[in-house]
Design a protein around this nucleic acid. Structure first.
Length: 245
DNA sequence: GCGACAG
DNA sequence: ATCTTGTCGC
């Protein structure tokens, strides 16, 4: 729907009530985390699915953030549609509060897709989070869409190295609680870290991540979104368009 | 008290 | 995230 907060430069502004301080952000997480749905298995891996990757790139000097949403056919990994949005940086980077930095512009990019995402793949964590409400969970609650998080490092969590082959997994632990999984997506390549966001089970989240990472360590959704948001960021201020559409 | 710490 | 040369390999 409409998340229109465009200013005179065609850039997205955060909503007026977007948190400004860490205390406010923590309060929002505290309020929203109860809305995460964890009792749905989510879309079955292997069946037709539009998987959307989202990612952002920053230029803190210019106070600019560019977001991309790229929709792929999960079976062929072909790009179905792409969208971008450019905004102002909504929040500083604080470990545990990443969502407040990325979400406003990501929502704007998602709004510009005409296809309905069957699954959204985030760059970061979902329930693997100090308060069990990372970016993927937050985005899931705000959109209602099934979401998962795929991160490149274990953050503050611990894990035993998974086996050496593609598809091998091990538990990602916060103390003795499994908050996600280390997943080896290519033989002999370091694992990625998968966690549930919203309306997807951990098993399904790992299965989707593995299928999407058919050719490389990272899911194709993440690679496509990363590439697109960087292009969108470098296009800011260049003659042509202002928002990428 | 001092680090570590998704992107 | 971002700053960055060369280099190895398909």
């Amino acid at each position: 729907m409409t998340t229109a907060h465009l200013d005179h430069d065609g850039r997205e502004n955060p909503p007026g009530d977007w948190p400004t301080t860490e205390a406010e952000a923590l309060a929002v997480q505290d309020e929203l985390r109860g809305r995460v749905v964890t009792d749905e298995a989510g879309p079955p891996p292997g069946e037709p699915l539009v998987a959307v990757g989202v990612d952002v790139a920053y230029d803190d000097e210019r106070d600019v953030v560019a977001a991309a949403a790229v929709a792929l056919d999960a079976q062929t990994l072909d790009v179905v549609e792409e969208a971008t949005a450019v905004g102002r940086v909504a929040f500083p980077y604080v470990p545990g509060l990443l969502a407040f930095r990325e979400i406003p512009t990501v929502l704007a990019a998602l709004d510009r897709l005409t296809v309905t995402p069957g699954l959204v793949v985030c760059d970061g964590y979902g329930l693997a989070h100090p308060r069990r409400f990372g970016l993927a969970a937050h985005l899931g609650v705000l959109t209602g869409l099934p979401t998962i998080g795929v991160a490149k490092n274990p953050f503050t969590f611990t894990y035993a190295p998974p086996g050496p082959r593609r598809g091998d997994t091990s538990a990602l632990l916060d103390g003795d609680e499994e908050v996600g999984r280390a997943l080896r997506t290519q033989d002999g390549v370091k694992p990625v870290f998968v966690s549930v966001g919203h309306r997807v089970s951990l098993d399904h989240a790992c299965a989707h991540a593995l299928r999407l990472a058919r050719d490389f360590r990272l899911p194709e959704t993440t690679r496509a979104a990363d590439s697109l948001c960087r292009r969108a960021l470098s296009g800011v201020g260049e003659p042509g368009r202002s928002t990428g559409v």
